Simulated assay, not measured.
Amino acid sequence: MTLMVHRLAAFVAIMCIATFFSATIFVELFGTGESIATLKSLIVWPGLFILVPSIALTGGSGFALAKARSGRLVQQKKKRMPFIGANGILVLIPCAVFLDRWASVGAFDTHFYVVQGIELLAGAINLTLMGVNMRDGFRLNGRLRRSA
């Protein structure tokens, strides 16, 4: 059961971040101020209320699964998770809230785009780290061969 929860929560978390990331780029390139404001609002609600619990469930279930395991891959996954969580709590959530507030009043100024750049960078970092954790998880359960 823990493994199923872990897989589902990880999938939801990765899909949320990937969706937020790609939608942000798409709406910035092709959208209007109103569509940017709508997207930023949707990222905060319901987006963060889906993402935050899914990351917490992924981390908690991952630590529970790792109790019975040891080795280099398990240790590397354990080292990445605090950074993923801290990046989300300290960077991604505040950025999302500020961007939503500024977009809702049409404040698309330098501050908005600097914070959005920070948000995109932090999102890309989290996606990369989560992808590497997923790869290592596949290696741990035998779905992917370990490289020599």
Rank of each mutant, 00 (worst) to 15 (best):
P82I: 03
A9D: 00
R72F: 05
T32H: 08
A37W: 04
L127P: 00
L99K: 10
A86V: 13
P82A: 01
S41H: 14
R80Y: 06
C16V: 08
F30Y: 11
A96N: 08
T110E: 12
V52T: 15
L3H: 05
A13P: 09
V115K: 04
N126D: 04
V74C: 00
M1F: 03
L73V: 02
M15P: 11
L51F: 12
P82D: 05
F20I: 03
E119Y: 09
T38V: 07
L129D: 04
V105A: 11
M81E: 04
A13Q: 04
A96I: 07
S61T: 13
R139M: 15
G117M: 02
I55F: 06
R143Y: 06
K78N: 05
F98E: 14
S22M: 14
I25Y: 05
S22C: 12
F11I: 06
R69D: 07
S70N: 07
L39F: 09
F108D: 14
T19M: 13
D109G: 14
A66D: 06
F83E: 07
T110P: 02
I93M: 09
A122E: 00
G85V: 14
A37H: 08
A96P: 09
E34P: 02
G59Y: 06
I55P: 09
I93Y: 07
G123T: 11
E34G: 08
N87V: 03
L57Q: 02
L48C: 00
A86C: 05
L92R: 09
M1Y: 05
K67N: 02
V132A: 10
D136E: 11
F21Y: 12
V91N: 01
L48W: 03
V97C: 09
C95A: 01
I125W: 07
A64M: 11
I25M: 08
